[in-house]
Design a protein around this nucleic acid. Structure first.
Lengths: 125, 125
DNA sequence: ATATTTCTCCAACAGTGTAGGGTAAATATG
DNA sequence: CATATTTACCCTACACTGTTGGAGAAATAT
């Protein structure tokens, strides 16, 4: 049974996955911000979560060489470890089930306006 | 900007939504267990979370009359409030984005075996 | 030297997740 | 009726996750 991750951890793992070999603090923050919108994501939250995920062995990191650009100090790049992949699989499967369940009732509201519910909102006796 | 909910809270809200007017502790527990599988969900966790969601005004409850069945004591039925609907909408939209992002890389692994990644897992320099 | 830019990291606290056991209210049974 | 059985609710206590805000390090630019 894989480690189970929280909501924000899931977002961070997803960001790392999608960034491939360009995953470091700043880019992860950008990706995470898009995933979590309209909610704001602070940089501090990202780094703290990266630390914890690394402690749990779900991701690993290595420090790069500096790049020849203004402010181009070295970056800490992250990658998903096998444990992290399994945790994300499980967690994403639950996300899918949630989305599908909500969609069955409300329709695909993310694509526009929310539709009518299947049943009328009658209260039990 | 809607209240934001955690992972388990999202599952509970989703369970309530999908149960319609049959949402009370035991049925919510069953739904939540299916949504969160293979992870186990304890009944205690469900009730604590229901309490907190009610305190925050995302759901409301009312006590029913007992039913004439063995052990048929009265149930506390829950329903989504407007705040809860908005919180779930936002939260489910993020779940969708996570699922889609993961799917772009790994394919729809929930339907069977995980496919190959789009890029090779090369580390940065 | 000093300013500016990019980037990492820490400390502290609030909020969420979880287990396990306790309690209550109904019907069934001898 | 006393006790068993079934269904259901609720609390306590603690671990883990989420979040903010700011400090500080390492580059290039002027």
């Amino acid at each position: 049974m894989p480690e189970s991750v929280g909501q924000f951890e899931q977002i961070i793992l997803t960001a790392i996955l999608s960034l491939g070999h360009q995953a470091y603090g700043v880019t992860i923050h950008e990706k995470a911000t898009r995933l979590a919108a309209p909610k704001k994501v602070s940089l501090g939250a990202v780094y703290v979560t990266l630390d914890r995920l690394e402690d749990k062995g779900l991701i690993s990191s290595r420090l790069s060489d500096p790049t020849p650009a203004r402010g181009g100090r070295s970056k800490r790049f992250y990658r998903l470890e096998a444990l992290g992949e399994r945790a994300l699989e499980e967690s994403a499967a639950t996300a899918k089930r949630v989305w599908e369940t909500v969609t069955e009732i409300w329709g695909d509201f993310a694509e526009g306006v929310r539709r009518r519910p299947k049943w009328s909102p009658v209260r039990p006796k």
